[in-house]
């Protein structure tokens, strides 16, 4: 379980208010897609979740416990770039989280290492990188690097996976493939996912819930004193439920297939409609 609650969270950098009064409950195993214009505080929101930044006011709790203001192994992350370590091979990258179990050497030996390698190899195969174990990230394409970043994060079995425009730099074909992978991982793993994206289609394809941030007052002289509010909170309908087959075609932009269901529109159901 990993229910995340934002209670009246404000984030300011000096005089600049970035986020205002964000109250939000993210259910366990939800897949929240976060959209909004550039500079609306999406990445700041993710940094709060990650623990890189602390809220100026308000609290963030996970399962009732306040979030530690430091990134930790309960929250995995995949960034758009620089998510993998260039000096480690594919296997080394995935293994690293396991190797951090050894406090001083930060390396595993003998049976412990063999077990970790087996687990890592399985995960590498899972994300479709079998056969590339000995390659370095610079030898992989952008899509493969992001697959590697997913495997690297998932080996820690995090409760929450945070994605910061992870597929933004990929071309559409590769992106569609990795969406399929992402969906499968979300269904099969005990994960709550929060994804920042610029791509509306991606948000509605993958998410169970789409949240938009927006600055209601965006005149230049107002920009500093007013932050972004949570302006839209849309639950995808019919609901997608982790681990259960979708009632629906996975991609709403696909050719329509008659499904015998009456309502196709996303119906607003959130706390702040």
């Amino acid at each position: 379980m990993s229910t995340i609650v934002f209670d009246k969270v404000w984030k300011e950098y000096g005089d600049q208010i970035v986020l205002e009064k964000i109250s939000l409950t993210i259910a366990s195993r939800a897949f929240v897609a976060l959209v909004g214009p550039s500079g609306c505080g999406k990445t700041t929101f993710l940094k709060l979740l990650l623990g890189e930044e602390a809220p100026t006011q308000g609290t963030i709790t996970m399962d009732g416990v306040p979030l530690v203001a430091e990134p930790g192994p309960d929250r995995g992350v995949v960034f758009q770039r620089y998510s993998v370590f260039p000096h480690l091979t594919v296997l080394g990258n995935v293994l690293l989280g396991k190797e951090f179990r050894s406090p001083v050497a930060a390396r595993l030996f003998g049976a412990a290492r063999r077990n970790a390698v087996d687990e890592a190899m399985a995960l590498i195969a899972e994300v479709g990188l079998a056969g590339s174990e000995t390659k370095y990230p610079a030898q992989l394409s952008g899509g493969m690097q992001q697959r590697l970043a997913l495997a690297q994060a998932l080996i820690m079995k995090p409760k929450v996976l945070l994605l910061d425009e992870p597929f933004g730099a990929l071309d559409p074909g590769i992106r569609a493939d990795i969406h399929v992978l992402m969906k499968r991982l979300w269904h099969e793993t005990e994960l709550t996912v929060v994804m920042v994206t610029h791509d509306m289609r991606e948000a509605f394809t993958l998410g169970t819930r789409v949240i938009a941030f927006e600055r209601p007052r965006d005149r230049p002289e107002e920009r500093e004193r007013y932050g972004s509010l949570l302006s839209r909170d849309i639950y995808i309908w019919p609901p997608r439920i982790a681990g259960e087959p979708s009632l629906f075609a996975p991609d709403r932009d696909d050719p329509a297939i008659p499904l015998g269901l009456s309502q196709d529109d996303p119906a607003p159901q959130g706390d702040n409609p």
């Binding site: 990650l50 890189e52 430091e70 990134p71 930790g72 192994p73 929250r75 995995g76 992350v77 960034f79 770039r81 620089y82 998510s83 993998v84 370590f85 690293l96 989280g97 951090f100 179990r101 406090p103 001083v104 930060a106 970043a149 690297q152 994060a153 820690m156 995090p158």
Partner: peptide
């Protein structure tokens, strides 16, 4: 890149590691 250090932290690495 800051992202790399953050990533290592989410993998459970200590400062020394």
């Amino acid at each position: 890149p800051k992202e790399q250090i953050t990533k290592a932290e989410t993998l459970g690495g200590s400062s020394w590691q």
